[in-house]
Simulated scan of single mutants.
Amino acid sequence: MTDQSHQKTEYQPPRVWVPAANGGPFASINRPTAGPTHEKELPVGKHPLQLYSLATPNGVKVTVMLEELLAAGHKGAEYDAWLIKINEGDQFGSGFVDVNPNSKIPALFDRSGDTPVRVFESGSILLYLAEKFGAFLPQDPARRTETLNWLFWQMGAGPLLGGGFGHFYAYAPEKIEYAINRYAMEAKRQLDVLDRQLAANRFIAGDEYTIADMAIWPWYGGLVQGEIYDAAEFLAVHEYQHVNRWAKEVAARPAVIRGRKVNRVRGKPEEQVAERHDASDLD
């Protein structure tokens, strides 16, 4: 007789899926529907640009861009950054959903013109700001296209790193060998893609620092520098010498150092600035 207690039960999907408790740190905010869960207006500060975010890699993209614009002399890029606590469901408030119906950070509201403009999805925000201020996006068609190639590469590849590898390696309530192996392979493939590109280029899209670097650095720079998922050793990130060289150079930029602090509520106390309403807040 076979001992059934030692046999692994294979999951069989039902004919129609129904929600089930999934555990993990984000279980309380996961749901299969969109729209607001409660009424809550968003605060509005004194600057035309209003950012609603959190210092996740996607949030850092935008605060770095805004600080880079200010460092480059674009005074119109002054902004208010309001903290959105995603673990507490702030992204499901009615005001936030009005700015981003997808209920994800970051979200930007530009009140500088006659008609307010909402901008959501981090890549869209980077492109919007680059075009608004004429900065960090080459005007030459070929170089512009190369920059956008890499911007959209990150937008497509990032979910496999974050929602794939990051989730199953760091956040899932149980360690699933198949899932971790599957996404670890993809994470390393992506690092190899970047390493080969950076072997021949100072920055992602060439010799010029662009929004492609701002999009990619918080994820892959953070990964090789041990700042996300604590997976540097597991993924043997030392193998990607060109990614490491680039990650260190970008991390040392004053605007990147400042941008990383905004909407941050974890880590070293000196790096945490929950809200930003004036440049002096970062000092």
Rank of each mutant, 00 (worst) to 15 (best):
N102A: 13
S122F: 00
S112W: 09
S112R: 12
A130L: 09
V119S: 00
K132Q: 14
F136P: 04
D114R: 10
D114I: 08
S103M: 06
S112K: 11
G123F: 03
G123Y: 04
R118A: 10
A130C: 11
K132R: 15
P101Q: 09
N100S: 14
D140K: 12
R118V: 13
E131C: 08
F133A: 07
V97C: 08
V99Y: 04
T115K: 14
S112T: 13
K104F: 04
G134L: 15
R118L: 01
P101F: 06
G134A: 13
S103C: 14
D140M: 11
G123K: 06
L137Y: 13
F120K: 01
P101K: 09
S122G: 08
P101L: 04
R118E: 07
F133H: 13
D114N: 11
F109I: 12
L137M: 14
D114P: 02
Y128K: 11
A130I: 10
S122I: 01
S124N: 15
R111A: 07
E121P: 03
P116D: 05
P116M: 03
A135Q: 15
I125D: 00
I125C: 02
P106N: 06
E121M: 01
P106G: 04
E121Y: 03
L108F: 06
Q139V: 12
L108A: 04
P138T: 12
P106C: 03
S103T: 13
V99R: 06
L127F: 14
Q139C: 08
I105D: 01
F96S: 05
D98M: 10
N100M: 07
A130Q: 07
E121F: 02
I125F: 02
D110A: 05
V97A: 06
T115C: 07
D110T: 05
E121D: 10
V97I: 15
Q139P: 06
D140P: 10
N100E: 07
E131A: 09
V99Q: 05
V117K: 12
D140R: 12
L127A: 08
G134R: 15
I125T: 04
I105E: 00
P138A: 13
A135P: 14
V117R: 11
E121W: 03
L126N: 01
A135M: 14
G134Y: 15
G134D: 14
V99M: 06
D98S: 12
Y128L: 08
F109V: 13
F133Y: 15
P138V: 13
L126W: 02
A107V: 02
F96N: 04
F136G: 03
A130S: 14
L127C: 06
V97P: 05
D140C: 11
P138N: 13
I125G: 00
L108W: 03
A135F: 15
S122P: 03
E131P: 05
V99N: 04
D114V: 11
S124G: 15
L108M: 08
V119D: 00
V119H: 01
S112H: 11
F96D: 02
P116S: 05
F133D: 07
R111S: 08
I105C: 01
S124D: 09
T115A: 10
F120H: 09
R111I: 02
E131K: 15
F120M: 02
A107Y: 00
K104S: 08
S122D: 01
F136R: 09
N100G: 07
R118F: 05
F120L: 02
R118P: 04
A107G: 14
Y128W: 12
N100L: 05
L126E: 00
